[in-house]
Design a binder for these strands. Structure first.
Lengths: 241, 241
DNA sequence: ATGAAGCACTAATTTAAGTTAATATCGAAT
DNA sequence: ATTCGATATTAACTTAAATTAGTGCTTCAT
């Protein structure tokens, strides 16, 4: 039995309270916890078998690669997040997932998922809600990349990550540990690593935020939010209906 | 009883065959068909009630607006598509949907949805699959906007729309009717309308495609696909698992 | 200890896209 | 008829970001 302080419970519990039956089902849905080294692929684009995981510790990212080698990072997963939930429904996975740090995951047992569909529909609804919420973040990400300049995108990206880290108890309003390299962040916000570096310098020199030694520190979160149109209640809007 | 040539059946039927029971349930899930005039909002961001529709005729788009008035179009819906399926699960809708032409829609009856959950789980799985497929397109859209230049984005966008139109029997390999204004396309691919106009001219002068008088014509689809990394089998990858 | 590799950082230059400004066309409304 | 608004179009100019070309700093393996 896993403690209810586990990130997945923190994440789901922020919106709905799972009954003991549902919590138990969530446990049985998972295989044994395994460790995966940084750099290893958990899911690759075009993969035939359906694999989905719950991320317990460490960070991963989902990305797509273009023929010319360029890579767009679609989302970053932090503890408590699901990995590859969507690929359960599609024939092939449409994106790759790689471990950005050493991670601890548990595989979702697909067979029992259909059983859960019958026995604990409320749990399934909660999972669907979590998937919807993640998709809403991808949409927000698209808006960012499509309509904001490099600085706003970067700040928005780091603010959102901070809000998510805070939600699972791994960050405060002013700081959180962020193991991403500048080139990962650049591929996520859709600019070059070199330009990201300039942007970070600009943010630093404007006393807005610091990103150094794997730590993000917000110096003026209000001004940042203003600057980037970030809505701190936006996570709340995504509560279950 | 609606003919099986309806776009929604064409869309779902391209991947799975609905049994008579499931088809009947799909019918009862829908309210009466209604007409909505071009320019009317079907769903607005922050809306409290959950509304979802099936689009039978005409085009709509889902978009988000920034404080500065800029608008990012997240996806275009054509006949046979669902509208606002995700907002059924979240407390507030996270995006707006507007009719781009006069449209015909039917509202999805939420109450019966839970009934359908029990009685025709396979239909629900099909709907979830359709939702996943749409989300995969949003992801593809994000990659496009994040990592491709204006010409590749534009061509990719028009190729994808063409493939979707062909799928529901409203287009051929070389041409389809497209009622979008240049400024709508620009907001979708994340460039200014003026720059889109330049890009379209360039595509025209390169004998790649024409977009005139509400009609898109591909002059050299192979070269376009090559140029934009478009994968014609990509829709197939999204079949149900 | 010593390269090699990866990451962070900077400056100079080029290019793609945005901005401003203006004209043309068409249909709808008065 | 003609004024208005939306859409499409083009050119001139500006700006943001990419590209190219480096430097310095760790860490890690030999």
């Amino acid at each position: 039995m896993v403690a209810r302080t586990d990130a997945i419970f923190r994440k789901l519990g922020a919106y709905t309270t799972l009954g003991p039956q549902e919590a138990a089902m969530l446990e049985t849905l998972q295989g044994a916890r395994t460790f995966v080294a940084a750099g290893k692929e958990l899911i690759y684009e075009g993969q035939q078998q359906h694999a989905a995981y719950i991320l317990h510790d460490g960070w991963t990212c989902a990305y797509k690669r273009l023929r010319d080698g360029a890579r767009q990072i679609v989302e970053i997963e932090i503890p408590g997040d699901f990995i590859g939930l969507r690929s359960l429904l599609l024939r092939n996975s449409d994106q790759s997932v790689v471990a950005l740090t050493n991670v601890e995951v548990s595989k979702i047992n697909t067979d029992r998922l259909w059983e859960a569909f019958r026995l604990t529909p409320r749990l399934i609804m909660t999972l669907l809600w979590a998937a919807s919420r993640d998709e809403a973040m991808v949409t927000e990400h698209l808006v960012c990349v499509g309509k904001r300049d490099a600085m706003a995108r970067t700040a928005h990206f780091l603010l959102e990550l901070g809000a998510r880290m805070e939600l699972i108890g791994l960050g405060s309003a002013t700081t959180y540990r962020c193991p991403l390299s500048q080139s990962i962040v650049a591929d996520a916000v859709g600019i070059t690593a070199i330009h990201l570096n300039r942007v970070l310098r600009h943010l630093r020199e404007s006393d807005l935020l610091l990103f150094r030694d794997g730590v993000v520190t917000f110096l003026d979160r209000d001004r940042l939010a203003q600057l980037t149109d970030f809505d701190f209640t936006y996570m709340d809007h995504l509560k279950p209906g």
